[in-house]
């Protein structure tokens, strides 16, 4: 087996004014890619305005990333939200 990518802990600030919150972990070869992966994995439903990553076995630094294009796109993916689908009341909760 080849060597595994390090594990990173991901912290995301969901809204301006709130603090960063731990949302989960992922694997990445380095911090830069960890931020990109975090963007792809943990902000699929526009949950974030700022991402911090910390290497799991080296909890020390974090690098706040620039805003802008990193956070724009997923706003338009309305189909990800359950309310996009009209389900008749008769069939019960879904």
């Amino acid at each position: 087996m080849s060597k595994e990518w390090p594990l990173w802990e991901i912290f995301i600030r969901g809204q301006h004014g709130l603090s960063h919150r731990h949302v989960g972990s992922l694997h990445a070869p380095d911090a830069e890619m960890a931020i990109k992966n975090a963007r792809d994995v943990y902000t699929r439903r526009n949950e974030g305005v700022s991402i911090w990553v910390v290497e799991a076995n080296n909890i020390s630094a974090s690098s706040p990333s620039d805003k802008g294009p990193l956070y724009e796109p997923s706003e338009s993916k309305i189909y990800r939200h359950p309310t996009f689908f009209d389900i008749p009341d008769e069939i019960g909760h879904m």
């Binding site: 949302v23 189909y79 359950p82 996009f84 689908f85 009209d86 389900i87 879904m94």
Partner: peptide, 20 residues
């Protein structure tokens, strides 16, 4: 438990798109 909470939030769209 925390993973399940996150997953459950996403699952309801799955079932609904299927029924749709």
């Amino acid at each position: 438990s925390r993973a399940m909470i996150r997953i459950c939030k996403e699952e309801s769209f799955h079932q609904r798109q299927g029924y749709d």
